[in-house]
Design a protein around this nucleic acid. Structure first.
Lengths: 242, 242
DNA sequence: CGCCAGGTTGATTTCGCTCAAGCAATGTGG
DNA sequence: CCACATTGCTTGAGCGAAATCAACCTGGCG
């Protein structure tokens, strides 16, 4: 063991994702506080980060990997709301409003995620007003995204919504092959993909079938290949008349 | 004219809605700044407050009346996203992110609405950190609402979504008649109501017809009457099995 | 008066959901 | 190692909900 007990956690001072998120405005002193208060651990794919109904002990910051926000309604329907990626902070809602969790979160794949207890969050927010401003910006973009999604849900077909989702996933998880086609490994099951566009999994299955028929994309297990990336973009371009 | 030029605007010091919103944390000095910077004016029903694409000059605070947030997509579909009521602050997105308006806002009925330019907002935010915290809470609840709406849209039928909407409107606009039934004047056209649940106006028309058949509510023009208020609540209660 | 926006209603088609069966991959206990 | 559940996915048939296209009211309003 060349590296001692700091091993599992990333040192906040050297945390790359941190330099691009809310916490980037912390000063040296505050960073020290953060570094010694945060607890970092690894999650395996699908492991629960927090669950609906439990008290909000703090926020989480994704170092690597990702997370999914899930809501399960009173009849057992599971809906994936949102995906969260490295550098993003998770679970601020319950902490800022001091309420219990209304959504669950789970690791998207093997992930490294830091936990910052709510007491420390409050101290830092009180000590450095810029942190609050950063959070404000962050939350405003979140509400913005949610509103965009609401508009899309209200106007688009399931197929179009799914293509939007594919594009978003491709941005995060895709790589460009030598022949210019885009390939990715889906981080989610078909069921969860379906829930994200508000459709049944059978319906998604058929949509995928049609996308393959139309030569837009090829699906094999969790691997997706899009030969002509802008065929996807054409799909979502609204057919403007006149 | 017994009252001089302060006439159109409400004095912030005596503004009742203000005492229950973000601005309630301002101190006397800051309030004075706000009071002399804000511009208050009346809007008539349907009048535009700000439009998509224009620069975000400031935020608006509803004194009386209400406002609707509207998005019009590239093919001309109009979607109503959200309604805003007295005490609530409007248009913070563009100001906080320093972007142009991505949604339009219009008066719901005859309304009195104050404008606070973004420069003043920034000054106040910088001077009083508590204001930022207040905004943070406010925006977090907004994102929360949006997420709830997303989940409902993903799982509920148009009829159920409409009943949810009716209940929300009834809370704001309804009065209880002597016989215990609830009555309200709808603040929106059928088209806009339909857009709020992501349906066509013809579909909404039929849903309304069925609600009347089922004796849940009676519609006449923009007047709605619900004889047994909990018949609505029964509608949205999920049928829990076993 | 004609015109128009807002609303209803009808006929038809499309889309998506439900229910159901089948299948491959994976796991588990004997 | 096999029999057997289990899980995730696909496919089919039937049905219901909603979109679409269209006609037709109604109440303003120039």
């Amino acid at each position: 063991m060349e590296r001692p007990k700091t091993m599992p956690g990333v040192n906040c001072f050297e945390c790359l994702p941190r330099e691009r998120n809310e916490w980037s405005v912390l000063t040296g002193e505050e960073l020290k506080l953060l570094a010694q208060a945060k607890k970092c651990r690894k999650y395996h794919a699908g492991e629960s980060i927090f669950a609906i109904g439990e008290p909000s002990h703090g926020v989480y910051c994704i170092v690597s990997g990702g997370a999914a926000i899930r809501k399960i309604d009173e009849v057992g329907n599971s809906v994936l709301l949102h995906l969260v990626y490295p550098g993003e902070t998770l679970g601020y809602r319950g902490v800022l409003l001091d309420e219990e969790r209304r959504f669950g979160a789970e690791a998207l794949g093997p992930s490294k995620i830091c936990f910052i207890d709510r007491h420390t969050v409050r101290i830092l927010l009180g000590r450095n007003p810029a942190l609050g401003q950063q959070f404000l910006r962050r939350v405003v973009t979140d509400v913005d995204d949610a509103h965009d999604k609401l508009v899309r849900n209200a106007t688009l077909s399931n197929r179009t919504k799914f293509v939007h989702l594919l594009l978003a996933l491709m941005n995060r998880h895709g790589r460009t092959a030598t022949d210019g086609s885009r390939v990715m490994e889906l981080p989610l099951s078909r069921r969860d993909l379906a829930s994200m566009i508000g459709a049944r999994h059978e319906t998604l299955s058929r949509i995928i079938g049609r996308l393959e028929e139309d030569g837009v994309a090829r699906f094999s297990g969790r691997t997706v290949c899009v030969r002509h990336p802008h065929s996807l973009i054409d799909e979502i371009r609204p057919t403007l008349l006149s």
